[in-house]
Lab assay of single mutants.
Amino acid sequence: QPKKFCDYCKCWIADNRPSVEFHERGKNHKENVAKR
């Protein structure tokens, strides 16, 4: 299972659409993006 690194959250997520979309909709991710 390939992994994708989220540069905002400094974490690895599964590299498939549902996982990536779920991660990017998450509160934690949105806060990290807003902080940039």
Rank of each mutant, 00 (worst) to 15 (best):
Q1R: 00
D7M: 07
A14K: 06
R17V: 13
R17Q: 12
V33I: 04
C9M: 00
K35V: 09
C6P: 03
K35A: 15
G26S: 13
V20F: 04
D15W: 04
I13E: 07
P18Y: 08
E21G: 07
I13V: 10
K4G: 03
R36E: 15
K30D: 06
K10W: 01
K10C: 05
E21T: 12
P18A: 10
Q1T: 03
K4L: 04
F22P: 11
D15S: 07
C9V: 00
H23Y: 05
R17C: 14
P2I: 13
V20S: 05
R25A: 14
C11F: 04
E31D: 10
W12L: 10
D15K: 04
P2W: 01
S19H: 06
N32I: 03
V20L: 05
C9A: 01
A34W: 07
K27M: 10
K27L: 10
E31A: 13
C6N: 00
K3C: 00
K10F: 04
P18T: 04
K3A: 08
Y8P: 15
F22G: 14
P18S: 08
K3D: 12
I13D: 08
D15V: 05
N16A: 14
C6S: 01
H23C: 02
R17S: 13
I13R: 02
C9Q: 01
H29M: 03
E24Y: 08
E24R: 03
R36K: 14
E24W: 04
R17M: 15
F5W: 00
C11L: 11
R36W: 06
N32L: 08
N28P: 11
C9E: 01
A14Q: 06
K10V: 02
R36V: 12
F22N: 12
V33N: 02
R25Y: 04
H23W: 01
D15A: 09
K27Q: 12
H29N: 03
F5T: 02
Q1G: 02
F5P: 02
D7Y: 06
N32Q: 13
K10R: 10
D15M: 09
E21W: 05
K35S: 12
G26T: 09
C9P: 02
K3M: 14
K35L: 07
N16S: 08
N16H: 10
V33T: 07
E21A: 08
C9G: 02
H29T: 01
C6T: 03
D15T: 11
S19M: 11
W12T: 11
E31T: 06
E31L: 07
K30Q: 12
K4D: 02
N28C: 10
N16L: 08
C11M: 14
A34V: 10
K35R: 12
R36Q: 05
V20P: 03
R17K: 10
P18V: 08
E21L: 08
P2A: 13
D15G: 10
I13A: 02
Y8L: 06
D15E: 09
N16I: 15
P18R: 09
R25P: 04
R25K: 12
F5R: 03
E31M: 11
N32C: 09
W12Q: 14
H29G: 01
P18K: 08
P18E: 11
W12H: 15
Y8R: 09
A34Q: 06
P18N: 08
K4R: 04
K30G: 12
A34I: 14
H29A: 05
I13T: 06
I13N: 05
V20K: 02
H29C: 03
E31H: 06
G26Q: 13
P2G: 14
G26E: 15
N28D: 09
H29K: 02
K30I: 14
W12R: 02
P2T: 14
Y8E: 13
A14E: 11
K10M: 05
F5E: 04
S19V: 03
R25C: 09
G26W: 06
Y8T: 11
N16E: 13
E31V: 10
E24F: 08
Q1H: 06
N28Q: 10
W12C: 04
V20E: 09
V20D: 02
S19F: 01
K35D: 11
N28E: 12
K10T: 05
R36G: 15
S19C: 03
E31Q: 11
V33C: 10
N32D: 03
D15L: 05
I13K: 00
K3Q: 14
P2V: 14
K30C: 13
F22A: 14
I13P: 03
N16W: 06
N16D: 07
K3S: 10
F22C: 14
H29W: 03
V33P: 05
E21S: 08
N28K: 15
D7V: 02
H23P: 03
P18D: 04
K27F: 08
V33G: 07
E24L: 01
N32S: 10
Y8W: 09
R17E: 12
N16K: 14
G26P: 02
S19P: 01
H23M: 02
P18I: 04
S19R: 02
S19D: 09
G26R: 07
F5N: 08
N32V: 05
R25L: 10
I13S: 03
E31R: 10
G26L: 06
G26A: 11
E31P: 05
C9Y: 02
V20G: 06
S19G: 05
R17P: 15
Q1Y: 04
P18Q: 09
F5G: 01
K3Y: 13
W12E: 07
N32W: 10
K30P: 06
R25T: 13
I13M: 15
S19Q: 07
S19N: 07
R25Q: 13
K35G: 12
K27S: 09
A14V: 04
K27Y: 01
K4S: 07
N16G: 15
K27P: 07
A34H: 12
N28W: 15
D7A: 08
C6K: 07
Y8A: 11
N16Q: 11
Q1A: 00
K3R: 13
K10P: 03
W12G: 05
A14I: 11
C11G: 11
N32F: 04
H23S: 02
F22Q: 15
F5A: 06
V20Q: 06
C6R: 01
K27T: 08
N28Y: 10
H23R: 01
A14C: 08
K10L: 11
P2L: 13
H23D: 04
E24V: 01
F5M: 11
H23T: 01
D7E: 13
K4C: 03
E21I: 01
A14F: 01
F22W: 10
F5K: 03
N32K: 10
R25S: 11
A34R: 10
K27G: 10
P18W: 03
K30S: 10
A14M: 01
K4A: 05
N32A: 13
D15F: 07
K3P: 09
V33D: 07
N28T: 10
R25W: 05
K27H: 14
N28R: 15
C11S: 14
V33F: 08
D15C: 03
F22E: 14
A34M: 15
K35E: 10
K27A: 13
R36M: 06
K27D: 08
E31C: 05
K4Q: 07
V20Y: 01
C6G: 00
